[in-house]
């Protein structure tokens, strides 16, 4: 798709929103300008909360601050487009469970409650219908793996903000230090 195509599509979307907006005003609703590519703002809060338990902040920043949600959101409109449904259904299932157990959204639970829910997902112990056929474990593992990829992977994909995990592991950054060695080596050869 050329950038021209993309612009014209965006114009089209903007125009349709404007059109729909005038009707929406009657119902006091306004199309929300989410800063995310795929997630809605409430969905992003749930992923933030999960990421923060998967990689909690201690003396080093946790999953939320490092940009896990941004990474996942970005990949869901790229290589992970095939996981969009899993995320949408997973987040909604988690919210349902959280509300029926604690009468609160998952992002509002305390850390102990969040961890206990996530441990049950990991162990495949969620009882509710929406988790049937191992969906609890599948969704948990997906968020867990993607969080690790984000936190410990190359920052260019939207996570690992400021190389924070490399700094934590005391790896000099950028990850590859080849160029300085190459210069040394050239110097040796020339000598």
């Amino acid at each position: 798709m050329s950038s021209g195509d993309r612009l014209s599509r965006r114009n089209f979307v903007v125009l349709s929103i404007l059109g729909a907006g005038s009707i929406c005003l009657l119902y006091r609703c306004r199309p929300q300008a989410s800063k995310w590519r795929f997630f809605t703002d409430p969905e992003a809060l749930v992923i933030d909360a999960m990421a923060e338990q998967i990689i909690p902040s201690d003396e080093w920043p946790g999953g939320k601050e490092s940009g896990v949600t941004n990474f996942i959101d970005k990949q869901l409109t790229g290589p992970y487009v095939r996981f969009q449904t899993t995320y949408r259904n997973g987040i909604s299932a988690l919210q349902e469970s959280s509300k029926s157990l604690y009468r609160k959204g998952f992002e509002q639970l305390d850390a102990g409650q969040q961890i206990s829910l996530m441990e049950n997902m990991e162990a495949g112990k969620m009882k509710e219908l929406q988790w049937k056929d191992g969906f609890d474990r599948q969704f948990f593992n997906m968020v867990r793996d993607h969080s690790m990829q984000s936190y410990y992977g190359n920052p260019r994909h939207g996570g690992n903000k400021n190389n924070m995990s490399y700094k934590m592991l005391q790896l000099d950054t950028p990850l590859i230090t080849g160029q300085n060695r190459y210069n040394n080596l050239l110097w040796q050869i020339r000598r």
């Binding site: 990689i55 990991e122 990829q149 936190y151 410990y152 490399y166």
Partner: peptide, 24 residues
């Protein structure tokens, strides 16, 4: 580092505080 996150002895935690500490 990202593969190291999956390098754990059997039974070790795969996420959470303990996992991050092991990594570090």
């Amino acid at each position: 580092p990202v593969s190291f996150a999956d390098t754990r002895p059997p039974g070790a935690k795969r996420w959470g505080r303990e996992h991050k500490e092991f990594q570090r």
